[in-house]
Every structure is written in C-alpha cells, then in structure tokens.
C-alpha cells in the first residue's frame, strides 16, 4: 500500500528509486567518483555505494569548494545519487544541487522517517512537494 508524505522543494525534479539512509552528514568529496562508494573513515555509509540511490541524510558538510566538486565528479561518472532527502539545508549543498540539477527536498513529514528503511522504493516529486513510499 503506497503512502504519501508532504515535503518541501529545495531543488526541482521528479524521480523514483531505491533509498539509502545515512545517519551521518555527508561530504561528496569523500565519495569515490569511480565507484560511488563512501570513502570517509568511520562514516555510517563507509564502503557503501550511493550510485542511483535516493539518499536520505541529515545535512551536508565540507567547504564551499569541495562539496560542489565532489557532486560534479559523481555527475560526470554517473555514479551519483538520483536525489537527496535532507533535514538541514545549508547554502553550499543547496546551491550545488540547484546548479547540478539534482532533485532535493527537505521538511519531510516526521512519520516518513519512522517508516522508511534501506531498500524501500520511493517516488519523489519535489515540484509538488510529495514523497511516496511504494
């Protein structure tokens, strides 16, 4: 039974895919652009690939420069995430996502976070402000 939750558009787009949940903040400079795997030591996703995933994490981190460069390299190799669902938007992550045309939402209904787990399939419609667990 599909269930739909409200959210808020950060960067436009409509996409569906499998989710990957990170409890840690993320810096895309510490994701290997060749494999999409997180290489940051002791990160919740260390060794896991973000490629083609709808990535759920709290917040971005890292300097104004490296975050954008990490995202760009992943976009070029096609090993990047399909979309992002975040809790705390910061200027660097938001600006980078808009420029790279990566769909992003925040302010998702708390009930979503209680339901969602790794491997779930979701339909994310940033433009309408809706995310549906399928």
């Amino acid at each position: 039974m599909a269930e739909t939750f409200s959210c808020h558009k950060v960067s436009e787009g409509v996409i569906e895919g499998e989710v990957l949940v990170s409890t840690d903040d993320l810096c895309f400079y510490l994701v290997d652009p060749e494999t999409g795997k997180v290489i940051e030591k002791n990160h919740a996703l260390e060794g896991q690939s973000v490629a083609d995933k709808i990535l759920i994490f709290p917040s971005g981190k890292g300097s104004s420069v490296v975050q954008a460069d990490g995202m760009y390299q992943l976009k070029m190799t096609g090993k990047g995430p399909k979309a992002l669902i975040i809790r705390y938007p910061d200027t660097v992550l938001v600006a980078s996502s808009i420029i790279m045309e990566l769909p992003v939402v925040d302010k998702v209904d708390e009930a979503f976070y209680e339901k969602i787990k790794n491997g779930d399939h979701v339909l994310l419609d940033a433009d309408k402000g809706q995310v549906t667990i399928q």
Binding site: S64, V65, Q67, A68, T91, V92, A95, S96, I99
Partner: peptide
C-alpha cells in the same frame, strides 16, 4: 555574509545582489 558556495558567490557577483536570509 552567508557561508556562500563558490558558485553562489559568483552568482552574487554577476547579479550584484543576494537573497536576504541567514
């Protein structure tokens, strides 16, 4: 100033403005 990204700061340089927040 906000904690601008390199690209958002370049946008501000080009337009001569920035959104009022933060």
């Amino acid at each position: 100033t906000n904690r601008e990204s390199a690209q958002s700061a370049l946008c501000a340089a080009i337009t001569g403005r920035t959104p009022l927040y933060g």
